[in-house]
């Protein structure tokens, strides 16, 4: 579905943002794109959807070259930006104006998503708060039935119940032929959704691994003292003792803590990456 090969990108030639990025994304999966501030997550997403053009390397999305931004490509790719501005019109008019550009747009799905978010269908967009506008935009993005959906910090600005509603909407809305990439720092909001983790660091993807693959190699535990666990790879003090990431030698089942995992990768990069080298 998405294939990036030896992608180089820079706003300024002297300071590359992405270097030799190789990535392959498959349909039917939700990818979590993680990285520090300024790592190039948004730039990578913009390269995938054709908002930025690579300096070299190739990007192929659904058989299209994104930089050409052909309508047939844009009908199948939808981006939910972190910052946005809604036009001064009612929700119904917004639908009337924008939905016809997407041939697979489902009005029924849009109404369902809006219901899940508890949003009224007949209201002026300008009268809504930023969070509410975001819910409209999320509903619209999912209702386009685009094959590739890119979301940049989708839970920023959403209140606590809305984050749960967001997870419900995404989990229920994904189809077999669709792929969703979520770039976020709010990993705790989304870690139950994500199928595969992408970590962007040092201008390249340093790790692409499924959640099941990660929990197969690593175990995530809560212990009272560090002696209770055999050679933790990474640990963090917590109120209940220690949160620990350890090598999963006994094939234990544990629930992945994405924030812990990301911190572990950042601090013990070589140790952890060596576990996933194929």
């Amino acid at each position: 579905m998405v294939s990036l090969q030896h992608l180089y990108f820079a706003y300024n030639k002297a300071v590359p943002i992405l270097e030799d990025v190789n990535l392959s994304l498959r349909p039917g999966r939700i990818y979590g794109l993680l990285g520090k501030n300024g790592a190039g997550k948004s730039s990578l997403m913009y390269n995938i959807c054709g908002l930025l053009f690579p300096a070299s390397g190739s990007v192929s999305v659904l058989g299209h070259t994104p930089a050409l931004r052909r309508p047939a490509f844009l009908q199948q790719v939808c981006l939910l930006p972190e910052d946005f501005e809604m036009p001064p019109m009612r929700i119904s008019e917004y639908l009337r104006m924008y939905a016809p550009f997407y041939p697979h747009f489902s009005h029924e799905a849009f109404e369902n998503y809006m219901k899940v978010f508890g949003m009224p269908a007949q209201q002026s967009l300008q009268a809504l708060s930023h969070g509410e506008q975001k819910k409209v935009l999320i509903s619209f993005t999912l209702a386009t039935n685009a094959k590739l959906i890119l979301m940049d910090e989708p839970t920023n600005g959403l209140d606590i119940p809305s984050k749960r509603q967001f997870r419900k909407v995404i989990a229920g809305g994904l189809q077999e032929d669709q792929c969703i990439v979520i770039s976020t720092h709010q990993v705790k909001d989304l870690d139950s959704l994500i199928d595969e983790v992408l970590i962007l660091e040092d201008r390249r993807i340093i790790l692409q691994e499924s959640v099941s693959g990660i929990t197969e190699k690593l175990s995530f535990r809560q212990v009272m003292s560090l002696e209770e666990t055999e050679m933790p790879v990474y640990s963090e003090g917590s109120l209940k003792g220690y949160a620990v990431v350890a090598v999963n030698r006994k094939a234990e089942q544990s629930r992945m803590d994405m924030e812990m995992f990301f911190n572990a990768v950042m601090t013990e990069k070589e140790k952890i990456l060596s576990l996933f080298q194929r």
Partner: peptide, 18 residues
């Protein structure tokens, strides 16, 4: 003009000629 509007304008499925 503004980045917030620009992203949405550029992602709209229309060609440059249109």
């Amino acid at each position: 003009g503004a980045k917030t509007r620009r992203v949405q304008a550029l992602m709209l499925p229309v060609s440059a000629l249109e």
